[in-house]
Design a protein around this nucleic acid. Structure first.
Length: 847
DNA sequence: CCACTGGAACGAGTA
DNA sequence: TGTACTCGTTCCAGT
């Protein structure tokens, strides 16, 4: 019954906020306020000067507010949603000296949430006490580091130790405020877009390591030591490191990596790629990057670096440029004391709908969201990599290049542009449920050999190894990626890096990220990006864990009996297929094995008989199934829908199996989870108490009454996205699933109707209709459970890898969208899907 | 000889 | 506290 708020005090960054506060008619600052906001003494004479007091150490306190003294989060949120942009302060009794931060939807962004509960949970961590406890633990954990950082930054009131989760969050809050109230100039140049691109989420204090990890969740317990530090690496065994003071340096003998430095991430190669036709362009593309071989969290942006960053005449982000570059110069003195701020805290984000244009000298950082398509241009991964590629260690030889699922290698193609060679960038990105960013524990590795036909060049961009591959007009602007392997860095090495927040254990899935810069007539570059399906990189997981790649059908009658065909890796006739249903509290309500049909099972595909559901129901029931090869060797769970008496088949996977979070960008699409924006969980959760509209907008009740049903609330699109018209999810009668062909695995791309749209029958009492064979038998790629399980209760955790986990019903998988109406009712709308497959259109299979 | 591949031993941590 | 298990890492043998 309590709510919490973040109480920022003694933070020089808050002065602009303070000034804003003062402009509010209902706000009367007190002496304490002046002190809290870092003014030497009280009085309005300090207001305009913004003369902050040097502070000991900025902090954030989490405080519980008694029920009679709190702002109801929901209402404040709504207030913000309605009038937040105008600064809607909730009517509440705040003690003086407390700073009220409006509950901008962005504070719920899992990617920005400093709390460990920034797991995939769509619940607001703000309202969860246990979360706050965890958060305070984080604060404890980072206290030392914070002190370190403060030591560096001390003397500068603006030297925010961004390494601290708390302070990072605070800084972000300030940034939001800045954005909202348009005082960009009052903010630090460290938030300039010209910063080094290597402000990866790892440096972000707001990315709790645990947010990406496993069932070993620390949500349930108080960590007693640095939790991410789990040196399982048998350091004593390292042949190459025993007596070497540069113990981290892989010996040249062992390392196939051309990287001369210590960690592959830790140094710069000074290679230049002159042989390639796209080399010049490539070098240009690289010119905006630089490597700082300093632990990221403690990096001070040196004067020269800042000079580069702030002094670049061409900001490169013209369309998005909010803050004048002079700002950086003006504050050079102060800036010297700045710590870098992760790029997610930069306010100059490309806004959805805006073209991702950048100047040639300022390519976007690797963790920036980019579309795969804009106008005519599209970057498309025509052949996806295999879902398993064993990465090699530095102590091993190469394990070869990434293979395609069938044969050969992944093929990437740029369509809509073929005037001149362009340079394709390739790096290894994360595959968790958060936004895409370079993976801390895996790096791309250039594979050489006589079988390698594609020329490529290895580069370092802000600590991330990147392969540069030319796309040539004579090759139809496509390339077979046969030169890219994956290098595994030792967890201990990475985790011990100051500033690293991710942990490596069980964080073994990656995505291959492709980027390209397309020259525009005005001299700028249009940046596009696409990603592969997730690729499992650990030997064990790849060998042991079953992986369902596709299954069909995705639904059947509650009577069961239909045959379910499963294909994937590590699936055999020895495997069990278990259907399960779990309650809102995570308890297993029902679990039963599906009977194997041995005569139809072979190799990597098996056929089982769908077991009957345990009770009759007039509603859709979404359950899960997984494949088990034994204890703790279970596949991810996949959604399966039991249909009531009326037999009707639903699309099982409206999202691709890969779970790729590539942000769509065209006018019909909005970024789902770019850093700095809140996740719009609209395609994720199917609460048990949902209404949905079918394509005819006839409401159909779906599921039992709510029982701790997750509540999602979507702010008006106009607030969250500048282009309201491009936000289909908030419009009940017209929703689009942001399918993105470029990220779909082949079977999805060619999938006819199934994954696109099959309208529900509008009435459960209507005439029974057998589904068409095509829709029933269409093969469905398995949706990625990482997408499927966005909800994590207080005791639930987020899994990176295949572990039995509680997949919640998935709206997206049903092609449904949840919408919360103003009166609190929840609706779910059946998405009207775009038909991507020309084949299906040609065959007229789409109703 | 080199790049690659598959398997497994080893040891620390966890259940 | 002991044991089985998990997982990351290293090593080896073979193609």
């Amino acid at each position: 019954n309590k709510h919490t708020y973040i109480y920022i005090y003694n933070l020089g960054h808050c002065q602009p906020i303070f000034q804003e506060l003062q402009s509010h008619p209902t706000y009367v600052p007190t002496a304490d306020d002046y002190q809290h906001f870092g003014y030497q003494s009280q009085g309005p004479q300090y207001r305009t000067q913004g003369n902050p007091r040097a502070f000991d150490c900025p902090s954030i306190q989490i405080t519980s507010i008694a029920p009679n003294n709190h702002v109801e989060l929901g209402s404040s949120h709504e207030a913000l949603a309605v009038g937040g942009a105008e600064g809607g302060y909730p009517e509440a009794s705040w003690s003086r000296g407390q700073l009220y931060l409006p509950l901008d939807a962005c504070y719920r962004d899992t990617a920005l949430c400093p709390s460990p509960c920034s797991s995939l949970s769509s619940r607001s961590w703000i309202s969860d006490l246990s979360s706050c406890e965890s958060f305070s633990n984080v604060c404890d954990d980072v206290e030392g580091e914070l002190r370190d950082a403060a030591r560096l930054a001390l003397g500068s009131p603006l030297g925010s130790p961004v390494g601290s989760p708390g302070c990072g969050g605070g800084a972000f809050g300030v940034e939001l405020w800045q954005q909202k109230y348009q005082h960009p100039s009052a903010f630090s140049p460290a938030l300039s877009p010209h910063q080094s691109p290597r402000q990866s989420p790892r440096q972000s204090p707001c990315h709790s390591p645990r947010a990406s990890v496993t069932e070993e969740s620390w949500l349930n317990r108080r960590p007693t030591s640095r939790p991410s530090s789990r040196p399982t690496s048998p350091c004593g065994k390292r042949r190459h490191s025993s007596a070497d003071p540069y113990a981290r340096s892989p010996s040249p003998h062992h390392s196939p990596s051309p990287t001369p430095g210590a960690s592959p991430r830790g140094s710069v190669t000074d290679d230049t790629w002159v042989g390639s036709p796209a080399g010049a362009l490539g070098s240009l593309l690289m010119s905006g990057y630089q490597e700082l071989d300093v632990p990221s969290k403690t990096r001070r942006t040196s004067g020269s670096q800042l000079g580069l960053l702030a002094g670049q005449g061409d900001p490169g982000l013209e369309p998005f440029q909010d803050s004048p570059a002079e700002e950086g110069r003006e504050q050079d003195g102060l800036a010297e004391l700045f710590l870098q701020v992760p790029s997610h805290f930069s306010w100059n984000k490309p806004k959805p709908g805006n073209p991702p244009l950048f100047s040639i000298s300022s390519p976007p950082p690797l963790d920036w969201p980019l579309p795969s398509q804009f106008d005519q241009c599209e970057l498309k991964l025509e052949v996806q990599p295999r879902s398993y590629h064993r990465a090699h260690y530095e102590t091993e030889g190469s394990r070869g290049s990434i293979k395609a699922a069938t044969s050969g290698h992944p093929i990437i193609k740029l369509t809509g542009y073929s005037e001149q060679p362009v340079s394709l960038l390739l790096f290894i990105g994360t595959s968790d449920d958060r936004y895409l960013r370079p993976h801390s524990f895996y790096q791309v590795h250039r594979v050489t050999g006589k079988m390698v036909t594609t020329s490529c060049q290895e580069k370092i961009m802000g600590g991330t190894k990147v392969l540069e591959v030319p796309l040539l007009p004579e090759n139809d602007m496509s390339a077979s990626i046969d030169c890219a392997g994956i290098l595994k860095l030792r967890n201990a090495d990475i985790e011990l890096k100051k500033g690293e927040t991710d942990i490596g254990r069980k964080n073994t899935r990656v995505r291959v990220v492709f980027r390209v810069a397309v020259p525009q007539p005005d001299g700028r570059m249009l940046w596009l990006q696409t990603t592969s399906v997730p690729v499992e990189c650990s030997q064990r997981s790849g060998q042991e864990l079953p992986q369902v790649e596709s299954f069909s059908p995705a639904s059947c009658s509650v009577d069961g009996g239909e045959e379910l065909l499963l294909t994937g890796s590590n699936i055999s006739t020895q495997s069990r297929v278990v259907f399960t249903e779990k309650g809102p509290d995570g308890r297993v309500l029902w679990e039963t094995d599906a009977r194997l049909v041995p005569e139809k099972s072979s190799g990597s595909s098996i056929v089982v008989e769908v077991p009957p559901y345990n009770r009759k129901t007039s509603d859709l029931v979404q359950v899960q199934f997984y494949v088990s090869n034994g204890k703790r060797k279970r596949s991810l769970t996949h959604n399966f829908t039991y249909l009531p008496a009326v037999r009707r088949h639903l699309p099982a996977a409206a999202v691709p199996a890969d779970g790729v979070k590539q942000e769509p960008w065209d006018t019909d699409h909005i970024p789902l989870n770019p850093p700095g924006f809140c996740p719009t969980s609209h395609d994720r959760v199917l609460g048990p108490d949902l209404l949905f509209y079918d394509s005819c907008d006839i409401p159909v009740h779906c599921g039992p009454p709510p029982h701790n049903a997750p509540r999602l609330h979507h702010p008006p699109p106009s607030l969250m996205f500048p282009h309201a018209s491009s936000v289909p999810s908030a419009v009940p009668h017209q929703t689009l699933i942001p399918l993105q062909t470029s990220t779909l695995p082949p079977q999805v791309a060619t999938l006819p109707v199934q994954a696109s749209s099959v309208p529900l029958q509008t009435s459960s009492g209507g005439p029974q209709r057998e589904p068409s064979p095509s829709s029933r038998r269409a093969f469905v790629p398995a949706a990625d459970p990482q997408k499927d399980s966005p909800l994590s209760g207080p005791g639930e955790t987020l899994n990176i890898k295949q572990e039995p986990e509680e997949s919640q019903p998935n709206l997206g998988s049903l092609g449904l969208r949840e919408i919360t109406l103003d009166d609190g009712r929840k609706l779910c709308s059946l998405s009207r899907c775009r038909i991507r497959s020309s084949e299906s259109q040609a065959k007229g299979k789409h109703p």
